[in-house]
């Protein structure tokens, strides 16, 4: 079937088996490989995207149901060469190692900060508890995002 979606503000049409995951279609058919397949069960968050205003695992979204959907992927978070504040914060705090989980963290953290610019450390922790990182032990990610929340607090 042909599905037309609005991805990162741009209308895109794609031919896909309707049962395929949005993740597969983004990654393999639409040239947007930033969203990552790591578990395909909704148990790691590496494929997180924002669908409308909802943070979801794109591996669990059936593309056949996505006609007309508005999707924000990791590729749509930065403004050109300007990193989004959550990206800048994770970059500066050394919150990236292998980086395979990073797109999911960026999308989930952006969604969090869009809805709550000043989350507490434990709120950040719970909000990102669906994103598994195997490299960092989460410490550097937390330090980056806590400092971003502190910046929000000062404003």
């Amino acid at each position: 079937m042909i599905v037309t979606l609005k991805i990162n503000g741009e209308e895109r049409s794609v031919s896909a088996a309707g049962w395929e995951s949005l993740l597969n279609v983004l990654h393999d058919d639409l040239g947007l490989p930033g969203s990552k397949a790591a578990c395909e069960q909704g148990e790691c968050g590496s494929c997180s995207v924002i669908l409308g205003d909802t943070l979801v695992c794109s591996c669990l979204v059936m593309v056949g149901s996505c006609e007309g959907a508005d999707v924000t992927t990791v590729e749509g978070i930065a403004d050109g060469d300007d990193l989004h504040p959550v990206q800048q914060a994770m970059y500066e705090s050394a919150g990236v190692q292998c980086g395979f989980c990073t797109p999911g963290f960026v999308v989930a953290a952006k969604h969090l900060f869009d809805h709550n610019p000043t989350p507490s450390a434990i709120d950040i922790t719970e909000a990102l508890s669906g994103n598994i990182c195997r490299c960092t032990g989460y410490g550097a990610i937390l330090r980056g995002l806590v400092s971003l929340a502190d910046d929000g607090e000062r404003e």
Binding site: H27, L32, G34, S35, K36, E75, A78, M90, G99, T102
Partner: peptide, 18 residues
């Protein structure tokens, strides 16, 4: 800071699966 940090944060780093 890592030279591959920004491509990894923006989804532009090429993993083999990509």
């Amino acid at each position: 800071l890592r030279p591959d940090g920004i491509p990894k944060l923006t989804g532009n780093f090429a993993y083999i699966s990509d």
